[in-house]
């Protein structure tokens, strides 16, 4: 777009992406609006980086990831992807058959391990199916590869023939990670990949994701709600609120000098692991927000401590302040 500086090696170039879910009449009475789960979102991801997406529940993170994977067909915009084999393709427009090929290069780790693992398949199938299809592996060779993958995510290879029901939530999540990494992908969309893991497995898994990134030059789109994790692993971070990116900056800048009032609210809501600093959490709990038709106001206005008249009359435009892209009328002034 207009004054965006071209980046050296862009693997993903998302422009004006929208995903509006039609609202069924039965569900919302007579309203004929749409849920604007993703609303005009643009960003670029560089090859080899970890691009974080944070934001509260319902802000459209998963929907955005599902659009990139083309599990959902976006209702507007482009998703440029620099494919290894096929050059630059628009994932929003490719044929289904081509997308199926691209699913080797672009993989997703799903948020809910419960519903993303078929309960009727044993681990060897869950992880190995894609290898059977993509590389024609079978028998002992397949078992060996799957066993290696399991080891690399901290699972014991003996579990090859067990079914998902026999695992705890964290164990299931690691099966999902092993599955996503099986085809040595280029781009991994990790939707809350470590959120369900306990601290020590989480640390191991984050370290593992970093090792794999270095080894294979992986690019991650890392969707998460744990800001400490995001700060630890991401190079750049986009903050989403009600379907829009309200702030985008490199990690240091974002955490050291958050510009958008929502980013600030988010950072101050992080519980500190020290009972003596037990803060007045009640002040930080936010009223839930939801997409309404706010063509003429800032979506954050209802919760923003800095909201003024202008904010309720006019949608803010993206502005660049101190290295950050901020969607706020008063970015840099407040």
């Amino acid at each position: 777009m207009d004054d965006q500086t071209p980046m050296d090696d862009v693997i993903l170039d998302v422009r004006d992406l929208s995903m509006h879910f039609p609202v069924r009449a039965g569900m919302f009475g007579k309203t004929h609006s749409a849920v604007r789960a993703v609303d005009n979102v643009s960003f670029q991801v560089r090859r080899g980086e970890t691009f974080g997406i944070v934001g509260e529940s319902g802000s459209g993170k998963t929907t955005l990831g599902r659009c990139i994977m083309r599990i959902l067909g976006p209702t507007g915009g482009e998703i440029g992807y620099a494919s290894e084999g096929a050059g630059m393709v628009d994932l929003a427009a490719v044929e289904d058959a081509q997308m199926r090929d691209l699913w080797r290069e672009i993989r997703m780790i799903f948020q809910d391990p419960q519903s993303s693992l078929n309960p009727r398949l044993p681990v060897i199938e869950l992880v190995g199916q894609v290898l059977r299809k993509a590389e024609g592996l079978k028998g002992a060779a397949l078992a060996d590869r799957v066993a290696d993958l399991l080891k690399s995510v901290g699972l014991r290879p003996e579990i090859l023939h067990r079914y998902p029901a026999a695992f705890s939530g964290g164990q299931r999540q690691r099966i999902g990670i092993a599955r996503a990494l099986a085809t040595k992908p280029q781009l991994v969309i990790a939707d809350e990949a470590v959120s369900a893991l306990d601290v020590s497995i989480q640390a191991q898994t984050l370290n593992l994701l970093q090792d794999l990134q270095e080894e294979f030059g992986l690019t991650y789109v890392f969707i998460a709600h744990d800001l400490a994790v995001v700060e630890h692993i991401c190079d750049r971070v986009a903050v989403m609120f009600l379907g829009e990116i309200v702030e985008l900056a490199d990690t240091e800048t974002l955490f050291a000098a958050p510009r958008h009032p929502y980013t600030r609210a988010l950072l101050s809501a992080v519980p500190v692991p020290d009972p003596r600093q037990r803060s007045d959490r009640r002040l930080r709990a936010a009223a839930p927000a939801e997409v309404t038709d706010t063509a003429t106001a800032c979506k954050f206005a209802a919760r923003c401590p800095h909201a003024r008249d202008l904010c309720r009359r006019q949608r803010p435009q993206k502005r660049t302040v101190g290295g950050a892209e901020v969607l706020c009328h008063f970015a840099g002034e407040i």
């Binding site: 934001g55 509260e56 802000s59 948020q111 939530g169 988010l266 809501a269 959490r281 930080r284 709990a285």
Partner: peptide
């Protein structure tokens, strides 16, 4: 059992409240 593990910090704060 891990009720807020899957939730963002502001929602988590709300549930804990």
């Amino acid at each position: 059992d891990e009720p807020t593990t899957a939730l963002d910090v502001t929602t988590q704060a709300q549930i804990l409240d």
